[in-house]
């Protein structure tokens, strides 16, 4: 790994599924872990939000010397200030979780960032294998433990899948002592959000699974079988035009474009 790759991991405030209490978010923790693995020295961990939030110390406790905060009120829009920050930074790799555990949790942020910065987005990364000559070899996480290796040129944004290495234990002392760099940024009010009404989600009743199998062996098969889609195919050797055509055909078929 060349020593100078500027990695930025974006972190948010997670929410424990049982207690509802703030915590280090699962996937964001993994984004920091991946960043630490890539380059501990040139990793910048960034949070857009409240600098006083104690959970940030849990991220810092992973061994960060400092953590950058773009201060923002609860009703602020993280997108524009993150775009500004990333534009002015020398970031080459930006890592985020797939979706936040609290707030809108739409999973859109990385896509919007990629769109505004004009960078490629690599979804659901399991691992970044190498970075050399301006390109990274990345393993994408596919269902059932499968991986796909892709090469992507820098700079890019990647979302980190649950298949990536688990976040290391956070240590109280270093977390407490880490230096918080609170930058001076203009916050932008999220106008759209202001008009929303937020209420707790009702758990949807679970659909009963009717298993027709008669024997235990059948049930076992039903429980472990891969869902047979069979629709997808991997195109490797075709020309770019052929690949594009295939995607276009699919989009038409699925009525995404008309």
């Amino acid at each position: 790994m060349p020593p100078k790759v500027n990695v930025v991991s974006l972190v948010s405030i997670g929410r424990h599924p049982q207690s509802g209490r703030s915590r280090r978010a699962e996937q964001d923790g993994r984004a920091v872990e991946l960043g630490l693995k890539l380059s501990k020295k040139s990793l910048t961990v960034v949070h857009a939000g409240d600098a006083q939030e104690p959970v940030l110390r849990q991220y810092a406790g992973m061994g960060l010397d400092s953590l950058t905060v773009l201060p923002q009120p609860a009703d602020g829009d993280a997108l524009p200030i993150l775009v500004d920050f990333l534009k002015s930074s020398k970031a080459q790799v930006v890592l985020t979780g797939v979706r936040a555990e609290s707030g809108e949790s739409s999973g859109m942020l990385p896509y919007l960032l990629a769109e505004q910065l004009g960078w490629p987005l690599v979804p659901r990364v399991a691992e970044i294998l190498t970075i050399k000559q301006g390109a990274a070899e990345v393993l994408l996480a596919l269902p059932r433990g499968q991986r796909r290796s892709v090469i992507v040129s820098l700079p890019f944004i990647a979302t980190v899948d649950n298949a990536a290495a688990e976040a290391r234990q956070t240590a109280f002392g270093p977390g407490l002592r880490a230096d918080f760099k609170v930058l001076d940024v203009n916050s932008v009010k999220d106008e759209a959000m202001a008009t929303w009404q937020i209420s707790a989600a009702k758990p949807r009743p679970k659909r009963l699974k009717v298993v027709k199998a008669k024997t235990a062996a059948d049930r076992m098969k039903a429980a472990t079988a891969k869902p047979v889609g069979g629709g997808g195919k991997v195109m490797k050797n075709e020309t770019a035009a052929e690949k594009a055509q295939a995607i276009f055909d699919l989009l038409l078929e699925e009525k995404v474009v008309r």
């Binding site: 061994g63 290391r168 234990q169 956070t170 109280f172 270093p174």
Partner: peptide, 8 residues
Amino acid sequence: LTLEKGET
């Protein structure tokens, strides 16, 4: 080990 190193 726990509070400083995070190595439990």
